[in-house]
Structure formats: C-alpha cells, structure tokens
Amino acid sequence: MNQDSSSPDEDIAQGVTTVSYVADACGRQQLTPGSFWQPVEVVNRQAWLVIEQQVARSKAQVAAGRRSRLHYYMTANQMNPGLLARYTGQPRWRVLLHLCPFFFQRMAAQTITRYAQLFQISPEELMSGLLKPAIPSRQDNSHHAD
C-alpha cells in the first residue's frame, strides 16, 4: 500500500492506534502507525449489521414468547447452541431445549447460575426484567496500564 491512500477514519478501533506495513517513497516496507484502512471499516460494519439484525430478530421472538430469554443472550453474545453448550458443559440438545420458553422456565437453579455466570448477569436478570446488552457493550475500554 502507498502512504497517500491511508484514511483518517478512526471508527472501529475506537481511538486505538494500530500499525500496519506501508511502503515508503523508496519502496521499503515500514511499520507505520495509523488507523484502519477504509475498506476494512466497510466490511467490519457489514459483519456487525448482520449481528445486529440477528439480535433484533431474537428480541422480537423473545417478546412474542416464541423463544426464551436465553436465545437473546446467546445471540447478543455471538454464540450458537454448540458454543453455548461447550461453555456451560452440557450436551447441545439440552441447550436447544432451553431456547424454548417452556423448558427455560423449568431449568434447575444450578443451570440458571451457570448461564448467568457465563453472560455475567445475575440469575434474576437472566430469568426476568429488561434484557441487558452483550458483554462487550457493558464494558468500557479504559484499561491502559499507564
């Protein structure tokens, strides 16, 4: 890539400066600080739009009583039943059952705790009340060491 084609857009890195290899005037590749290249922003945004659509659909299904609240938390955290099963140490078919409101309401206390711990919410928040956003949206990015 040539130096003049980098873009000043700083959207997806949220102000974090990244480095990439850019050829200088003599054609030497140099590690150059900068922000993301603009086409990367486009495809990153595209990937997030898909996730946002899935979350909105899940929310609507939960509101209509067709899916359990677990389905929302799974989708919002970019998981699928297989991954959720591995995180909570259960067979996949049990997770699939818990995605139905009928079985969700009848989960053992231990199972509820396991899901709640994974999604970093309280058991009460998992079972009722307002749906909380995904884990990354609840954390801020002020963790720099100095």
């Binding site: 890539m1 990244t18 850019v22 590749q29 990367v40 495809v43």
Partner: peptide, 22 residues
C-alpha cells in the same frame, strides 16, 4: 466481506500478510 476481513482486519499488517512478508 468475510474474505476481505480475513485479509485486511487487525493482525494482518495489510494485504493479507503480504506486506509483512515483503
């Protein structure tokens, strides 16, 4: 879009690691 992300997103150094190898 997925192909482009794998090629250009964080950690590649740009151009699907080709610039880094250069």
């Amino acid at each position: 879009g997925h192909v482009v992300r794998m090629q250009e997103e964080i950690g590649t150094g740009g151009g699907g690691f080709r610039f880094m190898y250069a």
